[in-house]
C-alpha cells in the first residue's frame, strides 16, 4: 500500500467513524442510571425500558404508529403495484404524467406537504385520524415503492403472461398466478420501506398531531426538545433490534428474488 492509498484509506475510515459513532454511542446510554444523557453511562439499570413499556402514552403512540405504518405499507404496495403494472404494460401519454407526479413528493419538502395537509385536514376533519396520517405517509413512501416494484416488473417477460392467457387464463389470473409471484419479493421489500418511512416520519407528525393522537416520532421529538431522558436511547435500542430483524427479513427476500429471476435462465 503506497502512502497515497494509505491516506485515502485513513480518510475514508475517519468518515465512516463520523457516520457510525453517533449512531452507536447513544445505545449504551439506555442503561444509564441517571435521568439525563451522558457518556460513558453511569451505573446500570433497565428502568428506562420499563419507563417506555409501562407508560400508557408511549404505548399508545407505539400502537398508533404501528397501525399507521402497516396501513401505509398496504396502501402503497397495492396502489403502487397497480400503477406500475399499468405503466409497464401500457404507458403512453398518461405514463409521462405519472412520472411527473411521482417526482413531486420527492422534491417538494416535507415541511411544505405537512403545512398543506395541516390546513386541508382541518377543513375535512381528517386531522388526528389514522386515515389522515396514512394518506400523508403514502404520498411520501409511494415513490420508493414504485421504483422497487418497477425494477422487478420490467424484468418479467410479458410472454409469460401471454402463455398463461393463451391457455385460457384471464389477465387478472395470469397476473395473480404468473407475474405476482415473480415480483413478490420486490413488492414486499417495497412494503417494508413504506413501513419504515411511515414509522420514522417526524415532520408531518409534528404538524398534524393534536394532544391525544401523537405518533412515536412526535413523542420522541417532545422528549428531546423538553428534557431528553434515557428513554430515547432505550427506544433506539428497541428500534435497532427491529431494524436487524427487518434487515434479516429483507436479506431472505432478496435471496428469494435472486432465485426467481434466475429460474427462467435455467429452462
Amino acid at each position: 500500500m503506497n502512502s497515497r492509498s494509505l491516506l485515502l484509506n485513513a480518510y475514508v475510515y475517519a468518515v465512516l467513524a463520523f457516520v457510525l459513532v453517533p449512531i452507536i454511542i447513544i445505545l449504551p446510554m439506555a442503561f444509564s442510571d441517571t435521568n439525563y444523557l451522558t457518556f460513558p453511562p453511569e451505573g446500570f439499570t433497565l428502568h428506562w425500558f420499563g419507563d417506555f413499556f409501562g407508560n400508557s402514552r408511549w404505548m399508545k403512540a407505539l400502537r398508533f404508529s404501528a397501525e399507521i405504518a402497516a396501513l401505509t405499507a398496504l396502501v402503497t404496495t397495492v396502489v403502487g403495484t397497480m400503477a406500475c403494472y399499468a405503466l409497464v404494460r401500457g404507458a403512453g401519454r398518461i405514463g409521462a404524467l405519472f412520472q411527473g407526479l411521482l417526482i413531486g413528493p420527492i422534491v417538494v419538502p416535507h415541511i411544505a406537504l405537512a403545512v398543506a395537509l395541516y390546513l386541508f385536514f382541518q377543513k375535512t376533519g381528517l386531522s388526528g385520524t389514522v386515515a389522515g396520517y396514512v394518506f400523508a405517509h403514502s404520498v411520501i413512501a409511494m415513490p420508493f415503492v414504485v421504483f422497487t416494484v418497477a425494477a422487478a416488473l420490467t424484468s418479467v417477460d410479458p410472454a409469460l403472461e401471454d402463455a398463461a392467457m393463451s391457455c385460457g387464463a384471464t389477465r387478472f389470473t395470469a397476473f395473480r398466478l404468473v407475474t405476482l409471484p415473480l415480483i413478490l419479493p420486490n413488492v414486499l421489500s417495497g412494503g417494508l420501506f413504506a413501513f419504515i418511512i411511515s414509522f420514522d416520519e417526524p415532520v408531518i407528525a409534528f404538524f398534524l398531531a393534536g394532544i391525544r393522537d401523537k405518533t412515536l416520532p412526535r413523542m420522541m421529538f417532545d422528549n428531546i426538545e423538553q428534557n431528553l431522558t434515557p428513554v430515547i436511547p432505550a427506544i433506539a435500542v428497541l428500534l435497532t433490534c427491529l431494524s436487524i430483524l427487518v434487515l434479516v427479513g429483507a436479506a431472505l427476500l432478496r435471496r428469494a428474488s435472486v432465485r426467481t429471476t434466475a429460474a427462467p435462465a435455467q429452462d
Binding site: I23, D200, I224, I232, P233, A236, L239
Partner: peptide, 8 residues
Amino acid sequence: SSVLVRTA
C-alpha cells in the same frame, strides 16, 4: 436508524 435518535 431513526432521524430523531441521530439528532438526540
